[in-house]
Amino acid sequence: MPAITDDPLHVSLRLLDRRVVDVDGEPVGRVDDLAFEQDADDAPRLVSILMGPEALGARLGGVLGRVVAGAGRLRPDAAGPPEVAVTDLEEVDTEVRLAAHRDDLPFPRSEAWVRDHVIGRIPGAERSSSGGKEPGGEAGVRQPPGTGRGGEVGRGPADGGARRLRASDLLGTPVVERSGRRLGRLRDLRLRADGDVHRIDGLVTGRGVVAERLGYAYGEVVGPALLVALMRRAERRTSHIDWEDLVELTADRIVVRDGAAARPGEGAT
């Protein structure tokens, strides 16, 4: 069964910043960023979730983001943030569950470092005794395919021709129509199932995206009345743009076809 059952799936509500737990439900991190790959003219498809400060730094942006990301790169063998391929996710619901056990994951490495060098040396810090499993000990053997450190996985098909994008590259980028009309910054991505994969199907812009983020836009959050009313108003200030209407995608801006922005109730989903 595929882990992602939502169709469409809005990444800000459903994936980004959600808690990531291992197969037993123990926390291992948060979804700090998402990686997409784009082959030729297809819409980018979701390949993996990224975790850790390096990924988070890119989401935060600015000086602070660089500081946070820098902290994540302190590891001597850093090769990008910890990454788990979508195919190795067990379930994506109110949190993201991995198919692997936390002891078999090569991350979070700072947890292991602090354990080995600081906490484990203070008298009274009992070692874990969960079935004689040495944390991380068998990582090399039992590590499920595709859950390795960043760089090893999520590279997609070995043909190497795919363009790699991160959610943080896209989110926050100004969206303009070809005529120059500004549609605000990109706030959310809508994914649709396409066979086994999920591809970006639409862009959401505008200030009303708080309603999406909080969960009001799709009827998941149903109260209290005051917030529902406020969020309904906010929703009117969002624009939905189909991926097909995209003209140009650069680091500084996203250009879309004139008249591509549909408000809710104007025909777009």
């Binding site: 808690r19 926390p27 944390p135």
Partner: peptide, 18 residues
Amino acid sequence: FGWPWGKFEKRDRASRFN
């Protein structure tokens, strides 16, 4: 940050928290 936390966790499970 999504770290393991808590007093019920074994210390070496929540080392950053401790």
